[in-house]
Amino acid sequence: MAEDALDMTTLPNDRTLTYDGLNAKAGGRVLVIACGALAREILAVLRLNGLNHVDLQCLPAILHNHPDRIVPALRDAVEAAEGRYRRIFIGYGDCGTGGGLERAAAEMGVEMLPGAHCYAFFEGVEAFAARAEDEFTAFYLTDFLARQFDAFVWEPLGLDRHPELRDAYFGHYEKLVYQAQTDDPDLTEKAEEAAARLGLIFERRQTGYGDLERTLLRFAGDGQA
């Protein structure tokens, strides 16, 4: 796992966050153990809110392509960190674990993010759920996924080698919703290009950090007490 200071300027690149993760130590009293796909966003929230007492450790984001590996990896990480922090928070939603992560978090006595996936809590879990019934033909990208579209979508689905399989995967989807955490024209362009490659209508939705920020602030605030 890459060691790093708690600083956006020295944040490892996406490739490292995807395959190695991050271990950002700042001698904090509380720890967030999160998905590598959320590293930038969590660090941004911590920095913007002056939450210097929070350390961040990220597991490789690519674990998402094998959800069965997420819970064991998190258990190991929590176990290894216990005793060194006053409180530990898990920066994952359900993330395809079928409730497994929620059960593990309850057993370990740690909190976690709400919602099924990052695209639920970025948009706001309640708002996302309210929209879900009408929007189940949407495929979502976040900032991280827009940058890492090839590594997380195109290549694992074999579309680089077999583009003819595209409709087997995406034939029932209608649009690609890019949930923008930041306002970055380059990322918007990348997301739009991804939509075109998948044959989907493109929609950009500015979400900011949504429930990720709200939940982190509550957790980090409690940790200061």
Partner: peptide, 11 residues
Amino acid sequence: LFVPEVLLAAN
């Protein structure tokens, strides 16, 4: 084997 290969075999 992974999903893409299974899909090709299924086709």
